[in-house]
Amino acid sequence: MNIVVCVKQVPDTATERKLRSDDKTLDRDAADGVVNELDEYAVEEALRLKEAHGGEVTVLSMGPAKATETIRKALAMGADKAVHLHDDALHGSDALSTSYAIAQTLKKIGFDLVILGSESTDARTGVLAAMLAERLGAAQLTLASKVEIDKTVVTVERVTDYGHDRVEATLPAVVSVVEKINEPRYPSFKGIMAAKKKPVETLAAADAEIALDQVGLANAWSEVVDFAPAPPRAAGTVIKDEGDGGAKVAEFLASKKFV
């Protein structure tokens, strides 16, 4: 089975994140890049499926040069090889362009199963997996808290607002995972050393037959009109509990008509 895991490098949420004043895109140089947390769960799930059913795990990441750090981390966890989609023309791509570029790359490299995180921590749109399923004509098995494979049939538990759905499809499929699906492994020393030798193929847009008028900031389907730091919340009242803390909160809630 040919499993491709999509991994995004995102700015560390523990550091200050900014938009660039020139083109209003995320300032990826201002903060340290880390693996999008949910993508570690996606890699873990891919590795488990490979361990159970055989096949190969390929990491796919679209991003700037420094995204290689993120790719190495996924390889150190145990993925077999990687494809790095890297082209300045892709800078500023929105969700439509990103899904288009990744779909083109997937068509080029081939896949049976694509696994993603259900959401990134920077843009947090949570649309990519659904868009890929739409573009690839593959089954959408998203928001999965459990994945099972029986030959060519994939069954997932899809987290819903009211509980979960069991959803079934035949490969090829696009899966996205939620946090409770597994516990990602830490790369071992051996894994880190081995990752250095694993093949990473770098593709430019043209290599994946990505039309340049469908990607990048200038061709985006949406734009940032303006942005500003959130105004600090007006300083609230903080009291010390002298046995009356509960009553004081109740008074505050009453003043705001919550009770």
């Binding site: 439509l96 899904s99 947090r124 949570g126 649309v127 997996a129 399923a133 573009r135 928001l143």
Partner: peptide
């Protein structure tokens, strides 16, 4: 989660931008 996925597929189908 589901609403955003619907929006995403709709955006691709109608060649329209989406904001979440």
């Amino acid at each position: 989660g589901e609403g955003k996925e619907i929006a995403g597929r709709l955006a691709v189908k109608t060649d329209s931008g989406v904001i979440t």
